[in-house]
Write a protein that binds this DNA or RNA. Structure first.
Length: 639
RNA sequence: GCCGAAGUAGCUCAGCUGGUCAGAGCACCUGUCUUGUAAACAGGGGGUCAGGGGUUCGAAUCCCCUCUUCGGCUCCA
């Protein structure tokens, strides 16, 4: 038979030749390095027979696919070790994931696993890796496979096979054996367990079977694997370093905010944190005004009637904080939209008035489940940079495009590059298909015209309309949704909103919900991790720290500070009788962008010695010149 | 909410199997030093060991409940 190699050469092989044979035919070095083979674009085991005429490419440790392969191998070895150590454990699934792998198990009654158990599971895994047990693939009819896994009591595998039959019409399934462990698995795998050069188990967690919270909670073991010990150590080192960027740690160390048991999930903002917070609110106002936004203020607490009208009473009550007043049930707002819709509906509108863009840095309360709270990134009390745009159908596309422009203009200031997701019509939805066609088309063409790349989440839209979300990852690579632009045909209906058209008839406006930073809390959490706490000059709560060398220079230091403050900067003077070295160190640790050292020389010359965060002495400068330079940095919003 | 883990001074942590176990460093306060680009020196104050029950002659240490936090899952800005 003949196969074609990546460089276009044709290789002649014996009939029934396998991927391993092909690799050997190319060269013994490659045969040794080979992990798997791509056959007509599909990754397969080396041991499988090649089809005649196939285009092949050998996967080695250098290939992009190599890590996924050995991580998947490692997941099987993990399962092998777990079953060795905990007989009677049921297995479910164990895929490779970004940065590692996991396997989900159901342990026998009475057995609970904790992280203390990981070392001995690792030891057991090492035995199997060292034994370099081959991965052997076999195929089985679905009937035989069902019998086999039923006998073993592997209920989860049985369910998987049943679903393969119903959903894919599967006739056969593939099994992989390594050592004594046989798993239902699509493959592919490397030739043997020995190819896993370095691995580590990392954590134990609960995970619902099939991601369904009504089903059994399985025990998930996370781990990672690499092609060399060095790569593994580098990865673990990176994870260590990421902890230093954690906004919860930095928020405390930098004196930005804190949390307390007296109000779980709600930040207490300290003066410095409040300054940062307010800076972002100002930014949003400053950018919103020229874009036609009008700020409004709406109440925190509303009669339950409003929530019934908006639909939140039915769909969101569980997550709302409720109270009573004079026999009226009331609820704190979890969203600003009903208030804005109510406000819009309170007066008459002409088509000439549209679009109307109401913005509000609205304070919200959502009673999020305790287990979901996460520093500033998931809180119960937060403030959105929220706005609602009421417009005509024809205006949707331009408005959405303008929202995206606004969002990117904002993110660019911080060097953040969000990932975009377009979520389309869900199964349960309001409105006819024609409406959804138009709404989705409006969103996707706004995305396309802006030249944005995005992924489509089919069926993930809100029940009232499709949406575009902006995602950013935190220091540990966890993705968080920040901004969102949502089309809503439902709320205008519920609130019976209307405007008079050119035809003098009543028309229903469309509502666009948009929050660009998302919430100030989450955005600040992400920013802190993005900058590792070293906020750019324009955002720093304390921009300049003036440091007199000795007590006798304090009056001059105060003068300099006052002058810079009068020039609009946030300045402190550290006049404590501590050593200058100590005060410089503390200003550095506080991530203050600019330090000014003033001693005899400066008092004499009237200038100041400038020290930039992280880069040492930069020489003397007049206060006036410095002020101008620093104000330019604020204006340009540069570091 | 679910699974697992943790909770000792403001912070980081010691305190092994219950019996001088309430400690250290940093921070804080006081005093001395008056400093030239990342930590001066000395002394001092501070915790009913998350909260509540229980076991015991005796609990920070063992058990139970609650709260909070951390890692995930589900859900979400």
């Amino acid at each position: 038979m003949n196969v074609t190699l990546p460089d276009g050469k044709v290789l002649e092989l014996d009939s029934e030749a396998t991927g391993a044979d092909a690799a050997l035919a190319i060269g013994p070095g490659l045969a040794k390095a080979a992990l798997a083979i791509t056959v007509n674009g599909e990754i397969r085991d080396l041991s499988r027979e090649l089809p005649d005429g196939a285009t092949i490419s050998i996967i080695t440790e250098k290939s992009d696919e190599a890590l996924d392969l050995i991580r998947h191998d490692a997941a099987h070895v993990l399962a092998t070790a777990v079953i060795d150590l905990f007989p009677g454990t049921k297995v479910s699934i164990g895929p490779a994931i970004e940065n590692g792998f996991y396997y989900d198990f159901e342990f026998p009654d009475g057995v609970t696993l904790s992280e203390d158990d990981l070392p001995r599971i690792e030891e057991r895994m090492k035995v199997h890796v060292k034994a370099a047990e081959p991965f052997e693939r076999s195929e089985l009819s679905v009937e035989d496979a069902l019998v086999r896994f039923r006998e073993l009591g592997e209920d989860y595998k049985v369910e998987l096979i049943e679903d393969l039959i119903t959903n894919e019409g599967a006739q056969t399934v593939s099994l992989y054996r390594n050592g004594d462990f046989v798993d239902l698995c699509r493959g592919p795998h490397a030739p043997a367990t020995g190819r896993i050069k370095a691995f580590a188990l990392q954590s134990v967690a609960g995970a619902y079977w099939r991601g369904d919270s009504t089903r059994t909670m399985l025990t998930r073991i996370y781990g990672t694997a690499f092609l060399s010990r060095k790569d593994l150590e580098e990865h673990l080192e990176l994870l260590e370093q990421a902890k230093a960027r954690d906004h919860r740690k930095l928020g405390r160390e930098l004196g930005l905010f804190r949390f307390s048991e007296v109000s779980p999930g709600s930040a207490f903002w300290l003066p410095k944190g409040t300054k940062l917070f307010n800076e972002l609110v100002s930014l949003s106002r400053e950018m919103g005004e020229p874009r036609g936004y009008q700020e409004v203020k709406t109440p925190q607490l509303y009669d339950a009637e409003l929530w019934r009208l908006s639909g939140h009473w039915d769909k969101y009550r569980e997550n709302m904080f409720l109270t009573e007043s004079e026999d009226h049930q009331m609820g704190l707002k979890p969203m600003n939209c009903p208030g804005h819709a109510h406000l819009f509906g309170a007066q008459q509108w002409s088509y000439r008035d549209l679009p109307v863009r109401y913005s509000e840095p609205g304070l919200l309360h959502r009673n999020e489940p305790s287990g979901t709270l996460h520093g500033l990134l998931r809180v119960r009390h937060f403030c959105q940079d929220d706005a609602h745009i009421f417009c005509t159908d024809e205006q949707i596309q331009d408005e959405v495009a303008a929202c995206l422009e606004f969002a990117f203009a904002t993110y660019r200031l911080f060097g953040l590059e969000p990932k975009l997701e377009l979520s389309t019509r869900p199964e349960q939805r309001l409105g006819d298909d024609e409406l959804w066609d138009r709404a989705e088309a409006a969103l996707s063409s706004a995305l396309d015209s802006g030249g944005h790349e995005y992924v489509v989440n089919e069926g993930d839209g809100a029940f009232y309309g499709p949406k575009i979300d902006l995602h950013i990852t935190d220091s540990l690579g966890r993705s968080w949704q920040l901004g969102t632009v949502q089309l809503d045909y439902s709320m205008p209906e519920r609130f019976d909103l209307s405007y008079a058209g050119a035809d003098n008839a009543d028309h229903r406006p469309v509502m666009i919900h948009r929050a660009l930073m998302g919430s100030y809390e989450r955005f600040i959490g992400i920013l802190i991790e993005h900058y590792a706490g070293a906020l750019p000059f324009w955002l720093a709560p304390v921009q300049v720290q003036v440091l007199p060398v000795a007590d006798r220079h304090s009056p001059f230091a105060e003068e300099v500070a006052a002058e810079l403050r009068a020039g609009g900067l946030s300045v402190e003077a550290d006049t404590r009788s501590e050593s200058i070295g100590r005060r410089i160190r503390e200003a550095e640790l506080a991530k203050t962008p600019v330090m000014l050292i003033v001693g005899d020389r400066e008092v004499e010359s009237g200038e100041v010695s400038v020290r930039e965060r992280g880069s040492g002495d930069e020489g003397a400068e007049t206060v006036a010149g410095l002020l101008e330079r620093l104000n330019q940095r604020v204006q340009d919003r540069t570091a």
